[in-house]
Design a binder for these strands. Sequence first.
DNA 1: TTGCTCCTCACGTCACGTGAGGTGGC
DNA 2: TTGCTCCTCACGTCACGTGAGGTGGC
Lengths: 293, 293
Amino acid sequence: MPVLLSIGEFARLTHLSVKALRHYDEVRLLAPADVDPSSGYRLYSTAQVPTAQLIRRFRDLEMPLDHIRAVLGSTDGVERDRLIAEHLRHMESKLDRTRATVASLRDLLEGRDSGSGLVVERRRLPAVPALAVSRTVGWDDIGGWLGDAFARLEARLASEDLERRGDGGALYSDAFFQAHEGEVVAFVPVAAGTAPATPWTAGARDRVELVVLPAVDVAASVHTGPFTEIDATYGALGTWVGERALGAGGPIREHYLDPAASGAMRVEVCWPIRDDRAAAGEDVRPPRYGAGP
Amino acid sequence: MPVLLSIGEFARLTHLSVKALRHYDEVRLLAPADVDPSSGYRLYSTAQVPTAQLIRRFRDLEMPLDHIRAVLGSTDGVERDRLIAEHLRHMESKLDRTRATVASLRDLLEGRDSGSGLVVERRRLPAVPALAVSRTVGWDDIGGWLGDAFARLEARLASEDLERRGDGGALYSDAFFQAHEGEVVAFVPVAAGTAPATPWTAGARDRVELVVLPAVDVAASVHTGPFTEIDATYGALGTWVGERALGAGGPIREHYLDPAASGAMRVEVCWPIRDDRAAAGEDVRPPRYGAGP
DNA sequence: TTGCTCCTCACGTCACGTGAGGTGGC
DNA sequence: TTGCTCCTCACGTCACGTGAGGTGGC
């Protein structure tokens, strides 16, 4: 037979602090079973203990209160399990990333320098016809979005019987780095002639399209190793470009080199630089990305 | 040769957002190498890239900005490595706890109920002479503090040649559960006669002392399994006590049963309850803890 | 009567993010 | 001249924690 407990007693049973319990009441996550009308005292039922403990577990896993409310409120058991499983996957991938960061820090501390062997290649990327998807993406969502995007691109390649010409890649707008949210374009090069003559224009969001990526001069360097350490290559390559005063505007381009060729994921980072004609005084604007008509 | 970059460029090189960089400037964690006096533009040196990337790695590991500032500012290399190693240990133990929580949630979801086999024993704990240490402890520090405390108690047992009488344990004040910070007493029972006749009094903080823990009636239940899941036992035991209207004031007591006896860590949770005399109408106050003179 | 538990504001914390409104150089 | 990048407030967010000041029942 359930019985009513004071907030302090309920805190002892559930290991939730009194302050947290009041907060959960305020945001309508866990309201007390009853409130004394004269004193305003919150009264919790022993029947609420399991719910409170579930909340505590979820909070231990840093699940946001909104998400917990959704889980607790979902009458559909299937939907509920899906939400929880999704969060567990999220936590597990976070564990992996943390482990990788710890390892890379250990390397750093023990003097294993990964950036010293930097090889920079300067070259002109020609205009390339490609199948592409574009979208405003948040920093933390980039991994998931790229996975989705390439799956969609592959599906379209197959369904339209298009011929692939080289490794896939992505374009990252300045805003993506500067505000940690911005336009990203995932692309797969295709055979010439299959794409229209019109160059890339922004506007069509999140739709697979045939486009032509503009030609651009770049300084390029290949990153090998975990994705979380790609900032080392960015730092080294950006420093290389900066110290030679070669910087130009426009998105940074990454090429995802076929893992089959080397056994491990390798990423070629392409940093836009001025071209020779610009150095000769010609008026050559850097390629603009996402400017629209 | 280092060169100066705008904040936006520096953001691209370091993968820190512009907002974060301005924040780090404001809190004096990473000031730009120079500031244009007329425009106020921040100018960062390429020589600052490694520091910025180190900050990013530490933030990925959720190291607080104050802690990072201490690490970067410590001229003493040994001290610096110690601070970093400490944080890595911290992260690794957090990883372990998260893994355990994920596992326990999976169990919960798959219907493995750990609380159903609850056995509650009602009994009177006699007054017990003990060697004890007491302190105000925060919720997240409890594991570390208990480890320290028992090490100190063991050392004193050895140095004073005292005879141990049973498993160690701890007393947890109401405040510890309700505000997640409060008085905790770690103790090891010793042979009668070695302790003074005076009962426990608060006041002496963080010092090993001989005391007498007062007698108390309790409902007790043994928790087996990871420490992070002990809330299940608290919930079940507290519900048991609540539904029988047996609740009494005073600290909760845990006994850490000798692992040698069963192979795994087991914790006996003792919940104070009214004794029989109270039920018979006698005026018996619940034992008070930390009341002082 | 004193202590204790509980109550409600109101504000603080941490590490930024979100606009608003404005300036300077190409 | 237009756009772009940068600037400074001021306020918002998330999940509580920290007091201040006060009430009700034993």
